[in-house]
Design a protein around this nucleic acid. Structure first.
Length: 289
DNA sequence: CACTTGACCTGTCCGC
DNA sequence: TGCGGACAGGTCAAGT
C-alpha cells in the first residue's frame, strides 16, 4: 500500500496519538510478521513508553524508552490504527473507524497501552512486519544501509537526484524510480504521477533521459509527494491513517487508475500498460517513447 | 554488478 | 451463483 506520503501521514498521526503511552500487553499469533523472541518482548516492549515516532523511506520507526524500537513495514496492505479507550473504532470518524471495529480478521498484532487504548497492526495480505530491534541497530539493517536519500529533504538537490540514477543506466526510468536504493519512498502511484508530470514515458531507458527531463522529474516527484502528504495520502484500496481515515490524493490523481478518462493537458485518453512488472498509467500523447 | 522475474498472501473483480 | 484467472500501494531471492 503505502508509499512515502501514506507512511508519513501515519507517522504524523501516531506521533500525535501514542507518544508517552506505556505498553501494557502485546498479542500476535503471526510469527512471520512479528518474529520477536518472547523474552525480548517481555524485557524491552512490555512496560516501555513510546518516546518518538519516525519515518525512513516507507519504514516506520516507533522508539521505546527501553532503547529498542518497533520497526514497521506496511508493504501493500498494512495499517496501523490507534483506538482510544472509549470505543473499538479509530478516532478519526464520528461513528467509528472507516475500517470497522477492531480487532478484526486482518489484525496481526495488538499493542495494549496502560490507559486502555490500543494500537492495531492490520495487514490483509500478510506481507508487512513489525520487528523489535535495538534503536542503535536500525542503521545496520540491510535495507537501511542500501536505501537512497529522502527526496523531500530540503538539502536534496536536482544534481543529487540525477546522479542517483547512474547505477540504473540501462533499466527503464520507472523501474529505477521504484528502486528504493536510488531514491527512497517512491512507489507505483507516485512513479506514474511524476512521470506524467514530467512528460516522460515510463519505458524510456535511464540513459536516454536528458538533464532537463531529470530536472523536471525531480520537481514532479517532490510536487506529487508534497501534494499527497497535504491530502493525507492516497486510498486506492486499503490505506487508512492512524485514525482509520482515508486519504484523498486519488481525487487529484492525473493518471493513476484513470484509464479511459482524459488527460487534463491534452484530452487524450489515459491508457494502462505494464512496465517493470507493474500496472502503469500514461497519457500516450504527452508521454511518448 | 545490473537487470528481470517469480514468490510471498488474501481478497476482489471480471469474464465465462 | 459459481469458478478460474488476473490483479492489487512492496520487497526479496533467485535467475539470466
Amino acid at each position: 500500500m503505502p508509499e512515502l506520503p501514506e507512511v508519513e501521514t501515519v507517522k504524523r498521526g501516531l506521533h500525535r496519538l501514542i507518544i508517552n503511552r506505556k505498553v501494557a500487553a502485546v498479542s500476535s499469533d503471526y510469527p512471520k510478521g512479528f518474529p520477536n523472541a518472547a523474552a525480548d518482548v517481555e524485557q524491552f516492549l512490555i512496560g516501555a513508553c513510546i518516546t518518538n515516532v519516525r519515518r525512513r523511506a516507507k519504514v516506520l520507526l516507533i522508539d521505546l524508552s527501553s532503547g529498542y524500537s518497533l520497526v514497521v513495514h506496511l508493504k501493500m496492505t498494512g495499517q496501523l490504527v490507534f483506538v482510544d479507550n472509549k470505543s473499538r473504532f479509530g478516532a478519526g470518524h464520528p461513528n467509528g473507524s472507516l475500517i470497522g471495529a477492531l480487532p478484526d480478521k486482518s489484525t496481526r498484532v495488538t499493542l495494549s497501552f496502560a490507559d486502555g487504548s490500543h494500537l492495531y497492526f492490520n495487514d490483509q495480505r500478510k506481507f508487512g512486519w513489525v520487528k523489535l530491534i535495538p534503536t542503535v541497530e536500525i542503521p545496520n539493517i540491510d535495507f537501511m544501509k542500501r536505501v537512497g536519500p529522502e527526496p523531500l529533504e530540503a538539502d536534496f538537490t536536482p544534481l543529487q537526484f540525477r546522479e542517483r540514477f547512474t547505477r540504473r543506466a540501462r533499466s527503464s526510468i520507472k523501474a529505477a524510480l521504484l528502486d528504493q536504493s536510488v531514491i527512497a519512498g517512491v512507489g507505483n502511484i507516485y512513479a506514474d504521477e511524476a512521470l506524467w508530470g514530467a512528460k516522460i514515458h515510463p519505458s524510456r531507458l535511464v540513459n536516454t533521459i536528458t538533464e532537463a527531463e531529470f530536472e523536471q522529474l525531480y520537481i514532479e516527484v517532490r510536487f506529487v509527494m508534497n501534494l499527497s502528504i497535504e491530502k493525507g495520502g492516497s486510498t486506492n484500496r486499503n490505506y487508512v491513517n492512524a485514525e482509520g481515515k482515508k486519504g484523498s490524493y486519488m481525487d487529484f490523481a492525473r493518471v493513476f487508475r484513470r484509464e479511459g478518462l482524459t488527460c487534463s493537458r491534452c484530452d487524450t485518453k489515459v491508457v494502462k500498460l505494464r512496465v517493470a512488472g507493474r500496472g502503469t498509467h500514461i497519457c500516450p500523447f504527452c508521454q511518448q517513447i
